[in-house]
Simulated scan of single mutants.
Amino acid sequence: MMKYRCLFILYLFNSQLWADTLVDPTRPQNLGKTMISEEQNNKMSLSAIFITANTKQAVINGNSYAEGQAVLAYKIVSISPNEVELIGPQGKQLLFINNDNIKKDADNGF
């Protein structure tokens, strides 16, 4: 009888361990996996530049940075009205605000 009790207790303990490994069939497949973001892919996208009398801020990959701060493996050297200059392991890199995504009228002095 004692043998059956021990087996029953082992069975209960074992079933608790298996319950932790069950997978929810309604859970999205990529929820547990880390998705590759722009930062993990080492791509930087400059979306805005804010320059006031006291500060210069650049929005890179959705986050705001000032001169001297680090973005990924790069350090922001300067922020100007149309570009951000960075220096890092691959040398100097410039990020441009428009990046040729906006079509310009050639007759309008551009």
Rank of each mutant, 00 (worst) to 15 (best):
L95P: 02
N54L: 06
I76Y: 03
S80E: 13
S47Y: 07
D20E: 14
R5Y: 12
T52Q: 03
V23G: 05
E38H: 11
T52V: 02
E83Q: 14
G109N: 04
I60C: 01
D100C: 08
M1H: 15
M1N: 12
N30L: 14
T55C: 06
Y74I: 02
V84W: 00
I87V: 08
L46F: 03
N61L: 02
I76G: 00
I49W: 07
L46K: 02
L31M: 14
D100I: 05
L31R: 14
V77P: 01
I51T: 01
V23R: 12
L10S: 09
K3L: 15
P89T: 04
D105H: 06
Y74W: 06
A53L: 11
D24N: 11
S37Q: 08
A53T: 11
L72G: 13
Q40V: 06
L95T: 02
I102C: 06
I102P: 08
P28T: 02
Q90T: 09
G88Q: 01
A70Q: 13
G68A: 00
I102L: 14
D100M: 11
K3V: 12
S64K: 12
Q69P: 01
T34S: 15
S15I: 09
D107P: 07
K103Y: 10
D24Y: 04
Q16W: 14
C6E: 13
Y4L: 11
N108Q: 11
D105L: 07
A19D: 04
G32K: 02
I102A: 09
N98S: 11
K43N: 10
K75I: 03
A19P: 03
V23W: 09
Y11Q: 09
N99T: 04
Y74D: 03
K3N: 15
N42S: 11
K33E: 11
N99M: 02
Y11N: 10
T21W: 11
I9E: 06
F8H: 09
L10K: 04
Y4V: 05
K33I: 08
E85D: 06
L12R: 04
P81V: 01
G88P: 00
A19S: 10
G68F: 03
W18G: 08
E39C: 06
K92I: 07
N30P: 07
V23C: 08
V77R: 02
L17M: 08
P89C: 02
T26H: 13
M35I: 14
L72R: 06
P28F: 08
I102G: 05
S80M: 05
Q93S: 09
G62S: 03
N99C: 01
D105R: 05
F13G: 15
M44Y: 15
T21F: 13
N30C: 11
D107M: 14
D100W: 10
Q16G: 09
E38G: 07
L17A: 05
G91I: 01
G88T: 02
D100V: 07
G68L: 01
I97D: 00
N14Q: 12
P89L: 05
N108A: 15
L7E: 09
